[in-house]
Amino acid sequence: MPPVETPVEKWAGKIHEVNLGGDARRLVVGGETTLPFLHFEGAIPHPPAVAVEVQDRPPASWAPELRASWGEAMEDPASWAKKAVEYGADLIVLYLSSAHPDDQNTGPQEAKKTVTRVLSTVDAPLIILGPGIAEKDNEVLVAAAEAAAGRRVALGFCEQKNYRTIIAACMANNHVAVAKTPVEINLAKQLNILICDMGLAPDSILMDPTTGALGYGLEYTYSVMERLRLAGLQGDKMAAMPMFCTVGEEAWRQKEARATEGIPAAWGDIATRALRWEELTAMTLLLAGADVVVLRHPQVVQRIKATIQKLMTKE
């Protein structure tokens, strides 16, 4: 019987460490020199962070279960963020949803106001996302970037078709960019290269490989993330950005998290199923290398926080 040797892989690379937040509360993500939670092999200096999604106006389309869980806090993004921090959020994702032309079509002034209010209410680092329409994103994110100067927030989404203005705003105010690409490793790397070409440092980028929820393309996200992480650890610096996943949004968009009528008994009751849907999506992507998971339900936040802690504890 040959002795059992611990099979350790030697990785040449290291995931970039991205600093977020102001003096009052800093957060670092990334820095891994091994695959997720394999403590026997390398360093995992910072646990993955749990972010809570807060919208700048009450999200009428959210599932009733979700809306009930936050209650009145949703009326005001600052109090919502405050409550999220109480539930354990490491950072806040602030969606400027109201800026969407089909929503309230709010502009840079409103964005500035919202960001300032949230920043003055919570110390937790912020990730600010635009409504996803290029023109509006550029408008409100530039304003948000100025309002958040000195607090090193992350701004998104930079996409291949629209990233330059957001990156310029990041560079002007020392912020971090969230680069989003559609579930493809080479596109992810390419966008990172393009962003770095503009002059933003590699340690100022989070990459969002696009999240597919459990049952809705999760396996694609999972494998793209595994490949990105492997490439990063093998020394490809343009694949070594910490990864960011919009878990809550994707999980709660699906029928499984919303449907209450006319569904098979095998689906189980809505609350159990919906929460597990979000949790398992998060869990799986954490194992693929997610460094920031954005969640929606307070109970899920607590459970995933606790689970990360267990995964970070060498037993």
Binding site: L218, A266, R276, W277, T284
Partner: peptide, 20 residues
Amino acid sequence: FSPGHAYPLLTLRQNIYTDP
């Protein structure tokens, strides 16, 4: 065992074991 737990877990298994 409960349906609300089994369904997501079985779905995850299906996802992970899909031939890429």
